[in-house]
Write a protein that binds this DNA or RNA. Sequence first.
DNA 1: ATTCTCACA
DNA 2: TGTGAGAA
Length: 126
Amino acid sequence: MTDSFSITDLAREFDVTTRTIRFYEDQGLIAPDRQGQTRIYGQRDRVRLRLIMRGKRLGFALKEIRDLLDLYETDRSEITQLTILINKIDERRDTLRKQRADIDATLEELDLLEENCQQELRRKSG
DNA sequence: ATTCTCACA
DNA sequence: TGTGAGAA
């Protein structure tokens, strides 16, 4: 009674739509029990949902999050689980740094372009 | 209010 | 990675 939730309960709690929660189920990230065909979520699903949201904040793909989640259930020794997570973290940092490098490059190019424009403007008006 | 499916960005 | 619509 206190540890089972409807899809709307969890949708409100995590500020997502019910569609999104069903979508995550389709993608294999959660597997709630059923009463007939309506989904009944337990604390286990709730915890997984919380981990999913954190993974999303950090920019991990749903597939990655699913793999990590699966590890948590199957792998009894947390050592391999943790090393894999650390690898994911390193990967993520890498792609973010590359994105930042791309953004910096674009910013610089914009600076150069504007400089040319300002120069042209001065030539034509001044 | 919930579920599923198909389509769509 | 989700959303919208239609039907049950």
